[in-house]
């Protein structure tokens, strides 16, 4: 099933948020080659969804949303039908965020959501996670 999720900033040209759901840590050395491949596509991808086969029996679904891209990494045991469902979820998220970022949208709720998303992305660009900070400063 799902191993991890990574959000990339196209502006910063790097991963800004990572989440682990399974056994594969996106920040581990073992995953560094796969991360480099994902990053390359995530930064270049302008719109839509991209399926990427990785080594070590992993696959990634990468989808682009304005200035950010999201990669969901699965192990190979995922059935084709399940991949299709995740793709649909990714598209739904992407279209939802597209709506929020639509410059023609005058919806107050959308503008509030955009503000929150921008704030979170900006903040993550600037600040590292507590674990990263501890590793950087002390551990």
């Amino acid at each position: 099933m799902i191993e991890n999720a990574i959000i990339f900033s196209k502006e910063a040209n790097k991963a800004i948020v990572t989440s682990i759901f399974g056994e594969v840590n996106p920040e581990s050395e073992d995953f560094s080659d796969s991360l480099a491949k994902i990053r390359e596509i995530a930064i270049k991808l302008e719109k839509g969804v991209f399926n990427l086969d990785l080594s070590a029996g992993l696959i990634a679904i990468i989808f682009a949303i304005q200035s950010i891209s999201v990669a969901l990494v699965f192990n190979e045991s995922l059935e084709k039908r399940a991949i299709k469902e995740w793709e649909d979820v990714a598209k739904q998220i992407a279209s939802g965020i597209d709506k929020i970022y639509d410059p023609m949208s005058a919806d107050i709720e959308s503008s509030e959501l955009k503000k929150i998303l921008d704030e979170i992305v900006e903040w993550h660009l600037k600040e590292e996670s507590p674990i990263d900070k501890m590793k950087d400063a002390l551990w």
Partner: peptide
């Protein structure tokens, strides 16, 4: 506040 700067309380 420096280590946990990402948390909403400090953000």
């Amino acid at each position: 506040s420096q280590i946990f700067a990402q948390s909403p309380m400090f953000r």
